[in-house]
């Protein structure tokens, strides 16, 4: 049975922990709102780009036909790159282990040699420990990554693909579903698989006047599309991190409060018992004197 003094000390220490987790929860909640906001601000651009690309790429017939652009061309796969996007920090529940497990399993399943491009310290450290070749790393993107910061990543990926260092590129990141749910996903980035066209591709092409030409527009569009996808993935990762951290810190605060409640109960009981014991002693002592 712990003494009153020990109990008191533990209660104080748990309360201090709760203060910290509560503060972290508040910070994460406000950052989360901004991160989610940024993710939704990127949507109109992304959707428009997708529609246009779907229309433009629909003219590139089926199998065997020469691809319209190197970024669309499927080559025999000799080397694979995985762009693994994770947060820089922890204290976010299972988010990091989930994304690392999903990315790690994916890499382990490949038959061809894989190189990892790590965004975020958590993923970099994970693959470093697993002795997977890390071709490049980008860390400290901050809570609100900008497009200027992610364009370096895109350039590296596109260059590696175009000069034949890698023949296929995947991206793995935590998709933001809701504040309570983040899902680790892995998607193919290159060669670009154009989104499916809603409606008639032929009609789309013949309806529009293209300046200078459909080919030029497509050639300008494709690198943008990659950049946008990477930027989106990085934003999703940031929103996921803040949400996961907020939820994790909320749970920690709730747990700490629960422990404080239990400890306080024990503390009061112990105190009560001690007082009763002391009273009995005094009463007993007085009785002995009178006797």
């Amino acid at each position: 049975m712990p003494t009153i003094r020990q109990l008191k000390r533990r209660i104080q220490s748990v309360k201090n922990t709760a203060k910290i987790t509560n503060a972290l929860q508040m910070v994460a909640a406000s950052k989360m709102r901004r991160a989610q906001d940024r993710a939704s601000q990127a949507k109109p651009y992304a959707e428009k780009l997708r529609t246009v690309l779907a229309g433009l790429a629909s003219q590139s017939g089926g199998e065997g036909e020469a691809a319209l652009h190197p970024l669309l061309e499927t080559r025999p796969v000799r080397n694979i790159a995985v762009l693994h996007i994770t947060p820089d920090r922890g204290l976010c529940g299972g988010l990091n282990s989930n994304i690392n497990r999903s990315g790690g399993t994916f890499v382990a399943m490949q038959h061809e040699p894989v190189q990892v491009v790590a965004v975020g310290k958590k993923g970099r450290d994970f693959f470093h420990r697993a002795h997977v070749h890390i071709a490049a790393e980008f860390t400290d993107l901050g809570d609100y990554p900008t497009q200027a910061e992610t364009s370096g990543i895109s350039r590296l990926i596109i260059d590696d693909y175009l000069n034949g260092t890698v023949d296929r590129v995947y991206v793995s990141f935590s998709e933001f579903v809701t504040t309570a749910t983040q899902r680790p996903v892995t998607r193919q980035l290159l060669p670009i698989e154009p989104p499916a066209m809603e409606g008639d591709g032929e009609a789309f092409l013949s309806d529009y006047i293209f300046e200078p030409s459909p080919e030029v527009v497509l050639a300008r569009l494709l690198p943008r599309y990659i950049e946008m996808q990477i930027y989106e993935a990085v934003l999703q990762n940031a929103a996921s991190f803040q949400s996961a951290q907020m939820v994790a810190m909320k749970n920690a605060t709730d747990n700490a409060n629960e422990i404080t409640r239990e400890l306080t109960l024990t503390y009061n009981k112990t105190r009560q018992e001690q007082i009763t014991k002391e009273l009995l002693d005094i009463v007993g002592g007085a009785a002995a004197l009178e006797g």
């Binding site: 246009v52 529009y208 006047i209 293209f210 300046e211 200078p212 030029v216 527009v217 300008r220």
Partner: peptide, 16 residues
């Protein structure tokens, strides 16, 4: 391809 002005009822256009 040079500066261009768009007025209402313009034909569908896609340009860089």
């Amino acid at each position: 391809e040079g500066q261009l002005a768009i007025l209402p009822h313009h034909a569908a256009l896609m340009t860089t």
